[in-house]
Nucleic acid binder design. Structure first.
Lengths: 340, 340
DNA sequence: ATGAAAGCGCTAACAA
DNA sequence: TTGTTAGCGCTTTCAT
């Protein structure tokens, strides 16, 4: 194992001090052009590799950003992460990623790991079971910025990047009503999550504004998984009169419902009109194509990361202090599953 | 900004040396039980946070592993990453993730970043345009293990985790032949990538073994994207006699082709039978359901990570030296799109 | 079982 | 423009 080359070695070779070498290497302006070039060349020739540990130790910054998501393997989350990676890499930050798999326990453990890894900032989308954010307290105490996206905590002083979930489902519900639906069932996830509780509000408001009565039995809570269609459809078909509109909080589950309904020979959209959520690939591949809400996932990743980095690079670290919520634009996309 | 608590502060409080504190904190055996407990308690009370930079600087290990994938937002890759995360977190390693977006240039830059971040090991799935692996030379020189998965380089001394792509497409082709297909078109990606060149072999071998003649015109190279169906179908329909079997190298593209064919009123599987690849969600949601090859993506992530970590934790770091290729089991899943 | 001392490689305050 | 010096906080001999 060969010895590591350090700035001392370079200093010796070029006959200058380690300080100057350090400065040249980090593009400090007060180094003569010629000196810098000589140092850079020598460094390259000697096979020098900067020691990031020493640098981080000294500068107290890791140049890395932590990301905690519920599930890595979801079309939505992976698209968000792609957006984040793009921006982070560009800005010279590393991305340290972990998943909570929807477990509070794991989220806590992930947060601790991130804290101990001394990430410069943290991006979080909450696990379903998370109903407090005490485990991020160490970050708050140390003024390490924590930015939430998509699934944000209720009582927060943190910045959140979201879409207007209430409005989105309001739009979708209104659309179904305009298409003539009289009884609309809303399928959504854990109501502890802002995303779903907000959507439920939008559903209620839209019913109200169009003179419909909200009924508890028209709301189905569910894991929204690929397998859930049959169970949901079974529930729906027990309702009398039979529902004629279905509002599902993600496209995977909506597609699953669509399949299950077709198996029962129920016509989409004539018998039951369906609207999904997210505008995932699958919404464009089932038949009929799924109406859905376009969720700008990649863009959300970019925006969240951009804001975090702007904050970190800002002299006074006050960008996020002044920002409460960033709301991105969503859009209802009407396709065959609800157009009649 | 409060001062950081160090082991020196703790040492002063408990009246012991920093050495002992360090030992207690890192579970060194030669510390009296009582001493350790006192130290651990004090550390907790004082709000001590270990400084990973100092530790890494001293130990020359980062306890982090780099991952470079072509695209973060692909069902296959994100599933692999979920598997990797699971194992890495469990073993106390951080995951630093970046994507090459299929560009060699970015892959090189990512590799450099990973190297400078001093990851303990690297997991790579190559970009489509990557035809050499010189940019990993610094890792090889420093004996930092690099493990490839799925898309592995041809001329390698590195360990690779793969499936038998040749056999998989051999199986799929044979299946189509048994179902009575006489003219099978194979759609695949960039042939520079082992994954696709191996599959092409499997296709050729299967034709040969069943007494068919391979024809260049039956092979279509493509980006396999969601939009590609129409273009591919157009090409297919120009072939005379019209093909009656279609072998597509991923499910997204296969689904897209299926949609395009149905638009042209071509019956699946009667007129053209289709087999996809990966067993993505979408294969279970289109109609008819897509026959496909089950690609154990999550498992591949687990296995790759497990082997890398075993190697790192092994006293002599020789586990991977002795391993050339790890091949996982694939499986042909026959569904409606090819059963006739 | 515990401690003293050295050093990992870098940066920044201060000096020249 | 360049250099001196002093740590950053930890681990690890080597000693006791």
């Amino acid at each position: 194992m060969d010895k590591e080359i350090t700035i001392y070695d370079i200093a010796k070779v070029v006959g200058l001090s380690p300080t100057t070498v350090s400065r040249a290497l980090s593009k400090h302006p007060r180094v003569k052009e010629i000196t810098r070039e000589k140092i850079l060349n020598t460094a390259k020739n000697m096979g020098y590799q900067s020691n990031i540990f020493a640098s981080s130790l000294r500068k107290k910054r890791s140049k890395s950003i932590g990301v905690i998501v519920p599930k890595l393997n979801s079309p939505f989350q992976s698209s968000v992460m792609a957006g984040m990676e793009e921006i982070a890499t560009q800005a010279g930050y590393n991305l340290i990623i972990s998943q909570s798999t929807e477990s509070l326990e794991k989220e806590i453990s992930n947060a601790n790991t991130m804290f101990n890894s001394r990430v410069d900032g943290l991006l979080v989308s909450k696990a379903g079971t998370t109903d407090n954010i005490e485990h991020f307290a160490p970050f708050f105490k140390k003024q390490i910025p924590v930015l939430f996206f998509d699934r944000v905590p209720e009582d927060n002083n943190c910045t959140g990047v979201v879409i207007n979930n209430t409005q989105a489902i309001y739009d979708a519900t209104s659309h179904l009503i305009k298409e003539g639906c009289k009884r609309i069932v809303h399928v959504l996830g854990n109501l502890k999550i802002n995303v779903y509780s907000d959507r439920l509000k939008g559903y209620k408001y839209a019913l109200l504004d169009h003179g419909f009565v909200f009924k508890e039995e028209n709301v189905i809570t569910n894991d929204l998984g690929e397998e859930s269609g049959d169970r949901i459809v079974e529930k729906i078909l027990k309702l009398k009169p039979r529902p004629d509109g279905l509002l599902v909080s993600n496209d995977t589950c909506a597609a699953s419902c669509l399949m299950a309904l077709k198996k029962k020979n129920i016509k989409i959209p004539e018998d039951i009109a369906i609207v999904g959520f997210n505008n995932d690939l699958i919404s464009r591949m089932v038949e009929p194509n799924l109406s859905t809400i376009n969720y700008p996932s990649y863009h959300m990743g970019e925006v969240a990361m951009k804001n975090l980095i702007n904050h970190l690079d800002d002299e006074h670290h006050e960008i996020l202090q002044k920002t409460n919520t960033i709301t991105l634009r969503h859009e209802l996309i009407v396709r065959g599953s609800s157009k009649r």
